[in-house]
Design a protein around this nucleic acid. Structure first.
Lengths: 208, 208
DNA sequence: CAATAGTTGGACTATATAGTCCATGTCTCC
DNA sequence: GGAGACATGGACTATATAGTCCAACTATTG
């Protein structure tokens, strides 16, 4: 966990932890759909069925809540990606990973974008701490992609000279850029296209 | 111009047009730096040295102002890109284009991201009209990239079968994703890396 | 030079929203 | 089982912000 999750020094009963989790869950969902700025504390209260004092009991204020949401969403995304990428060691596996993300986004016609990416866009310029956490999360996600590429390398699919980390950065950017274009067009096609191009580039190196 | 710029039917004197432009200019700058949601009308008033009634004389409300900002920023970006890309017909030219964008972003250590991209992220899920405009702007920008690739094709640098439009989409996504990663990391390196990867892929097709 | 339409200044209002407070209820641990 | 800490409910406040109103001013046009 990044920030104080088990309230600095305070005891925290199972009941309290549950309430806290309910708040963060509701806030994360709302902020994904409505955006961070337009999600009010009253929205969060209504959605989680919790009173204001409880919210302020568990969080110092909205900023702290936003940070908790970043932590929570980050954990969820990284967990999902770890499951999806942790053992992939083929180009086909990467394509399946791509398909899953694209199809998932297609359910909303691209709306809302990447859970992490849209948080990053909304928060990065306003909260240095949250930005830093998001930056680490992206790096971690990228590390999972690097792992896949390294396994490809180990299996001889990619040459030893292939710049693994840079390829992972490029793939990550293709993903995030694709999300943004899809979100704006309300059509996942550009997202599929951009990831395809990145994967095609990676695949083209295997000939070398 | 997309939305009503010369107020539907109303006369508009040179003086009025100037005031209107001052408002949009100030709003665009503030919204780029502070974000759309956290920029208040009072901020815009203070920055442009204009009174509230003038703002409401020229715009129906904040939404209308945001749309005018989208139009204005869009025009500025497209103009800049038309100048930068309009006559490029070499890979080297594309690299110079990349350098200009990266260096420009480096001046702010990546902060604020792409003028169009960050607007898209903030506005797409809240204002269908603005989203549509932004989508068209991205398409237009991408069209400029397609133009470059087509010239490369005409000059025999790229093969006839090269999927121009998809490559342009991929390049655009690499750019936008790079912006987002740079904004989050406050370091332009990932932006440079991701565009490089897209350009390397395009270049690699010239061998085919 | 009127008459009309566009332009401006700034006080005023309504409301949404973050944040406070305190009384009461419920655990935990000795 | 009792003391003290944790947890909860909800009313209350302060304030920021979008939006209104109107009187006065300035340009344009017949």
């Amino acid at each position: 966990m990044t920030t104080a999750d088990s309230q600095n020094g305070k005891r925290l009963t199972a009941r309290g932890a549950k309430t806290r989790a309910r708040i963060v869950d509701a806030a994360a969902d709302l902020m994904y759909v409505k955006g961070v700025g337009t999600t009010t504390l009253d929205d969060v209260l209504a959605a989680s069925g919790v009173s204001k004092s409880q919210l302020y009991h568990h969080f110092e204020g909205k900023d702290a809540l936003v940070r908790a949401v970043v932590d929570h969403v980050g954990e969820r995304v990284i967990e999902r990606e770890r499951r999806a990428l942790g053992r992939v060691s083929t180009i086909r596996g990467l394509r399946r990973w791509r398909d899953a993300l694209v199809q998932n986004s297609a359910l909303q016609h691209g709306a809302y974008g990447c859970a992490l990416g849209s948080l990053a866009g909304e928060v990065s310029d306003h909260d240095a701490l949250a930005r830093h956490t998001l930056s680490r999360l992206f790096t971690e996600w990228q590390g999972l992609l690097s792992g896949v590429l390294r396994r490809l390398q180990d299996r001889g699919v990619l040459p030893a000279e292939a710049p693994i980390d840079q390829l992972a950065t490029g793939l990550m950017a293709a993903l995030q850029g694709g999300y943004l274009l899809a979100q704006t067009a309300r059509d996942v096609t550009p997202m599929a296209t951009s990831i395809d191009m990145a994967l095609a580039h990676i695949e083209s190196l295997s000939a070398g």
